[in-house]
Simulated scan of single mutants.
Amino acid sequence: MTYTTLVSAAALAANLDHPHWRIFDCRFSLADTAAGYKSYRQNHIPGAVYADLNKDLSSPVQPYTGRHPLPNIELLAAKLGDWGVNNRCQIVVYDDAGGAFAGRMWWLLRSMGHTQVAVLDGGYGHWRKRGLPTTAILPKIAASGFRSYLDDRQWLSANQIETGLASRSIRLIDARTQERFLGKAEPIDPVAGRIPGALNRPLQSNLDRNGLFLSPDQLRRQFSDLIAPWPAERVVHMCGSGVTACHNLLAMEIAGLGGSKLYAGSWSEWIRNKNRPIAGDERTAKSLT
């Protein structure tokens, strides 16, 4: 069986020794960028390789980019090969943040033409609650060869976002918390607010109280109400830096609403250009200038 959106803890546990399955630990903390790797070295799912958001899944920040620019795809493809991935592998990605960071690797692989990739539902926390095996032993990796078939239509630039909103040809959805979206608080970026015309769907809305994704039917109803009358193919997702937005994109795929896109630069790129419009709490905006 092929998994392309989510995989359960039970299904992964049953395939830990499968020769064509590869597992990636994507745990990360924006507040402490070394914390994810430290946690990985302490314990992880057997066979998992660590993929660092900053070092592996993003490019260095430039003056005109957001906080997590898309990685150099050729370099990432070479790393995947070094990590034992080939184009026939079933890949599973996980984190301890409900899929907020693992979703980035899921989306990247799909954009590179590899659809056999799934996020572990419930992540590392659910895995441990179920008493499934963990280890501190680093895996022995036999290098393979991975070829990318990049589809650069899967993301939009800031200019495309401006044009799409002006022509009302896209529906823009922001995955940040409501406080950040409304401009009432901004703990990360230097300017608070939102892109005018965007709608808010905090990524936490996609999960139940146990940290598992809502059912496809529930997600379909909620997203259909949010994006109407736009079709899924006209929906674009954003967040602070283009990482957690992938969570909403994944949720739409789970719901059977395929074809939405990513604004990869997101808010942290948008505010680099002072000529781009912003909306939000004026009092907060003034306090940050």
Rank of each mutant, 00 (worst) to 15 (best):
E74L: 10
P190H: 08
A97Y: 12
L257V: 12
A51L: 15
Y3E: 10
N87P: 11
F223K: 08
Q116D: 11
R221F: 14
L156D: 10
S287N: 10
A232V: 07
V236H: 09
P187V: 15
H114T: 14
V49Q: 13
N54C: 06
L249H: 10
S144N: 12
S148G: 12
N159I: 12
T134Y: 03
H237Q: 07
N86L: 09
F146P: 15
R22L: 01
I23H: 02
E162R: 08
V191P: 09
G131H: 02
C89T: 15
G98A: 03
M105R: 08
I173Y: 00
R147T: 15
R110V: 09
F28V: 10
F101W: 12
A51I: 04
I137M: 15
R67K: 03
A118L: 00
G256A: 02
Q116S: 14
N87H: 13
E269Y: 01
P69V: 10
R283I: 14
A143P: 13
L226V: 02
G211E: 09
L75M: 09
D121L: 04
R67N: 04
T163Y: 14
H126C: 10
V92D: 07
A232N: 05
K38V: 13
G240I: 01
A78H: 13
G36F: 00
G47Q: 00
K79S: 03
C89V: 12
S39I: 01
T115H: 10
A31N: 15
D17G: 07
G259N: 11
G103M: 02
A77I: 01
M1W: 03
P229A: 00
M112W: 01
A136Y: 04
A14M: 03
A175R: 15
P69Q: 03
